[in-house]
């Protein structure tokens, strides 16, 4: 199976905001934030259809999310995971003495993980931390 390298960024979306206020323990929050938005070109490189689960890995961690088509693209070379625990499983925690982790611009590898599930926020954080 193919694996691709992309540059990961994250941030807010309306769906993320709405889902967050409806309860982060709910599936809707996972559906809003446990996703990776990719350009069509990246799906070609990966050799998968949209809405397939993928594993995203960085130097700092790994997480399974659902790959979907870019809603605010095209953004060549960039992958987008909305702000939340899924994105934060991957980002660079180094602050370089500013206090601010390097949330944007994390090099990640994406490969197909069709048979794995996207965990909800509480399960994800529990698995990672407890």
């Amino acid at each position: 199976m193919a694996a691709i390298q992309i540059n990961l960024i994250s941030g807010r979306t309306i769906q993320q905001g709405v889902a967050m206020e409806s309860g982060k323990e709910k599936p809707a929050y996972r559906d809003a934030c446990g996703i990776l938005e990719l350009d069509d070109a990246e799906f070609k490189r990966l050799g998968i259809f949209k809405n397939t689960n993928v594993r995203v890995s960085s130097e700092f961690g790994t997480v399974v999310v659902k790959a979907i088509g870019a809603t605010q693209g095209p953004h060549p070379g960039l992958g987008w995971i909305p702000m939340g625990p899924w994105a934060n499983a991957l980002v660079d925690p180094n602050t370089y003495s500013t206090g601010m982790p390097t949330f944007k611009g994390t090099p990640v590898t994406v490969d197909v993980a069709e048979n794995e599930t996207v965990l909800d926020a509480i399960a994800l954080i529990t698995e990672e931390c407890l």
Binding site: M20, K24, P85, N88, D92, P93, F103, A121, E128
Partner: peptide, 12 residues
């Protein structure tokens, strides 16, 4: 909610 919004290394 740092659990959701901090890098996971900090949440651990």
């Amino acid at each position: 909610d740092p659990g959701a919004h901090f890098p996971v290394r900090s949440v651990k």
